[in-house]
Every structure is written in C-alpha cells, then in structure tokens.
Amino acid sequence: MGECGTHHPRGRIWPRTRPGDDRRVDPVDRVRKPRRRFPEPVELMAQSAARHAADLAVGAVDMNALIDQIDLNRVLDQIDVNRVLDRVDVNRVLDRVDVNRIVARVDVEALMSRVDVNAVADRIDIAALLDKTELSAILTRSSTTIFSEAIDLVRSQAVGLDSFIARWVNRLLGRGTKRPPAPIGPPRLVSLRAEQ
C-alpha cells in the first residue's frame, strides 16, 4: 500500500493523515455511514443476490392463487371513493374523451328497444310541462292569427268583387272617358289620406 493509506483489517483502505494535515477524522463517521464499511464489490454481489432472490420468489408465487385469496370487497370497503374522486380532475378527463366515438359505438336501436316509453311518459308531469311551455299563449296567438287571416280573406274577396263590379259599371257608363271619373271617397277622408 502507499504511504498515504493504511490497510484496514477488513480490507478497506482509509486515508491516512499526513503530517501537517489539519483535517480531522471523525471516529463516529464510520458508524454513521455503514455503506462505507463494505467494499463496493460486496455490495454489488448483495444487490445481485437480492434481485435473484426476488425473481425467484416472484416466479414461485402463483399470482392468480394470490389474487383469489384477496377479498376485493374488503379492499374496496377500505377505499374512500369520494377522496379518490376529489383528486380526479374531471374536466381534464372529459377533455381527453372523444364523445363522438363513444356515441358512434352506442347501438341506439338496442338502447331504445330497452326503454319503456310508457313508463317514461307516466313519469312526466304534463300539467307542469304545459305551464312551462305556455301552450295556452301559443294557442291563443295561433288562433288569433288564423282568425285574422280568415277575416282578411273574406274582406279581400269582397273588395275584389266590389272593384270588379265598379270597373265594369264605370266602363259601361263611360266614366273616365266620356264622363269625369267618380270620386273615390268622402272629401275629408280623401284629403286626410292625401296628406299622409
């Protein structure tokens, strides 16, 4: 060995303090760091042996038999699902979900065949639904529109016939050609209309 080290009885070479070296060696340091007490090859061997032993142990264990022995219900009972869910960022999960693909995989026909429509209809509160939709207002509005259109239709037919008769009478009497045209309405109403 060199002059700067001492051969330890267990094979470890420890630095030897040189004359004039001010560094002190802490005697407890060896106890605090037990790894330093072993040489590296030994440590490597130990790790290798442990790995081998673990592989052998895992290989020897029948995982299916082990899982069969586990009472999953008891395990699940011990899990606080709410806490787990609290830690899940649902928005991020939903962002990663392709809803269109999911919907495309759903067999709507089969789904609908399993739905009891009558039962669903029985659960609907028709009165509340009608209150929300204001159906009466819609019916009133549509009825008013229909009535208004019917009245307009009757009036337009009557006015059309009036105009037709008046045109022929004016033609027979020569109004507008041989005679001056007839006034269209009372003077006050005609002037009022002309102003507007």
Partner: peptide, 24 residues
Amino acid sequence: MSAGPRAESGFWGHYAGFVSRFVA
C-alpha cells in the same frame, strides 16, 4: 271620422261596394 280607422294607402276611406255591404 270618430272611429279613427288607420289612415293608410289602399282602399281605406274609399266608398264601399255592393258586395261588401250586402255580405255585411
């Protein structure tokens, strides 16, 4: 006219014809 019908263009204020009066 006291009833105050809307003064719009068209037939408003014109003398009414025979058919309208007869149907009425």
